[in-house]
């Protein structure tokens, strides 16, 4: 079980390369969504590793707020920010 969690965290670190070196903002947003879902899987698997079932509630609340967060970013960052450097 713990090797699975280690491999998923290493996968998230690999995916973070796209957040650092994304040419535009939607690339970074897609990579952020992927890392968020991978961390939700890590939370569920840690609940099975420690055998405390209260940790699944943390994963449920985290999933709901991740969805709301991405929707708010997609509403307000729809056009490029005026004061930005603009890579």
């Amino acid at each position: 079980m713990l090797y699975l969690i280690l491999v998923i965290v290493l996968t998230a670190i690999l995916t973070f390369y796209r957040v650092i070196k994304g040419p535009s903002l939607p690339d970074r947003l897609v990579a952020m969504n992927c890392i968020g879902v991978m961390f939700l899987l890590v939370l569920v698997l840690l609940s099975f590793y420690f055998e405390r079932k209260i940790f699944i509630d943390v994963a449920l609340v985290y999933g709901v707020f991740l969805f709301i967060n991405v929707l708010i970013m997609a509403k307000y960052l729809r056009k490029p920010w005026k004061g930005g450097v603009g890579d």
């Binding site: 903002l25 939607p26 969805f67």
Partner: peptide, 29 residues
């Protein structure tokens, strides 16, 4: 609870990808 999280994830992730794909016109991609 796991089934609830799975159904919620499989509903909301296509919504997120569709919203991200809908604002690429503003970025000159």
């Amino acid at each position: 609870k796991l089934i609830v999280i799975m159904i919620f994830l499989s509903i909301t992730n296509p919504v997120t990808i569709h919203v991200i794909a809908s604002f690429d016109n503003n970025y000159n991609l």
